[in-house]
Design a protein around this nucleic acid. Structure first.
Length: 300
DNA sequence: CGCGTTTGACCAGCGC
DNA sequence: GCGCTGGTCAAACGCG
């Protein structure tokens, strides 16, 4: 019996030792996981800081762009002394403020553009109307030239232009002639799923309907500009209704970017835009690997 | 039948 | 001056 008891004690001791060892191993594994988690968190924090820095830089650049555009508009308005010509210069020499929708941004300037700008620099720039360009990301299967920007439009023409195989549609605000805003919609040459809408003029009436701002096919974020259509909404503008300029200003004001949800959307769009840019991803990968390499070197 | 869209014709600016 | 091109007009057409 004593022998049995002693073997039982030995077995229980072995078990205790085994459990303790397992716990120690488990603890070390947990510690290793916690360390790894801390390391990943630190990396995430660094990346987050980088992104924040990029956001700050982006905001600074955007602010400078807006100031430049406003300055150009003011200068052009002062210089606007000659009678308006019916046919305008290409949109490139106009004060164009752009927006980014669905992660598609305005393409960078080409050599042709540079030549054009050099040529144009010698000429006096006359801006007749405020022009903004908005990019709408659509479904690739969607072949219509309709963008849901919250205003009611009447199509009055369609034309195939020389530089783009896809047709360009011409729209007038349905409130015309009281509102003389026009827009041109054409698919992007680079990406057929992107609709490029060029707005000319400024609505002198509030948006017919502002319902369900995120329900539409097209998601959009405006960087500000003379005409800033809100997202997907349908409705007919009423000529009988008095024009509510305060509401109109509320709708068009660039300050709406300060709304948290819009700001969040802006960040999402920007992040999406950046991650789609191979140059950016390459630069980001280089930065991350560089930091990891640096960290490994310091640990050794 | 009314309204919106389509589409060919026409107009006017621009470059050669 | 002529041709090219973008922009607009308006009759024809389709849909509800």
């Amino acid at each position: 019996m004593d022998q049995y008891s002693s073997s039982l004690v030995d077995t229980s001791l072995d078990l205790t030792i085994g459990i303790t060892r397992m716990r120690v191993e488990e603890d070390s594994t947990t510690n290793a996981l916690v360390d790894e988690l801390k390391r990943v968190n630190a990396e995430n924090k660094k990346l987050s800081e980088m992104l924040t820095l990029m956001c700050d830089n982006y905001n600074v650049v955007r602010k400078q762009l807006m100031e430049y555009v406003n300055k150009s508009n003011n200068t052009a308005e002062r210089e606007q002394t000659s009678p308006p010509k019916k046919r305008k210069s290409p949109a490139r020499d106009e004060a164009v403020s752009s927006a980014v929708i669905g992660g598609v941004s305005e393409s960078s300037s080409t050599d042709q553009d540079d030549q054009y700008l050099c040529k144009k620099q010698r000429e006096e720039t006359v801006v007749k109307e405020k022009v903004s360009r908005v990019y709408y990301k659509t479904e690739a299967s969607d072949t219509t030239l309709v963008v849901k920007d919250g205003y009611q439009w009447r199509k009055y023409g369609q034309k195939v232009t020389r530089d783009n195989p896809s047709p360009r549609a011409y729209f007038k605000c349905a409130c015309a002639p009281s509102c003389a805003v026009k827009k041109k919609v054409q698919r992007s040459v680079e990406d057929q799923s992107v609709l490029v809408a060029t707005y000319e003029g400024e609505h002198n009436h509030p948006m017919p309907s502002q319902m369900d701002s995120n329900n539409g096919l097209n998601r959009y974020v405006s960087l500000g500009g003379p005409v800033a259509p809100a997202a997907a909404a349908n409705g007919r503008c009423s000529l009988a209704k008095p024009v509510d300029l305060t509401e109109s200003k509320k709708v068009r004001s660039p300050s709406r970017i300060e709304f948290p949800e819009v700001q969040k959307l802006l960040v999402e769009q920007m992040a999406s835009s950046l991650t789609r840019d191979p140059n950016f991803t390459a630069a980001l990968a280089a930065a991350v690997t560089g930091r990891l390499y640096q960290k490994n070197q310091t640990e050794k």
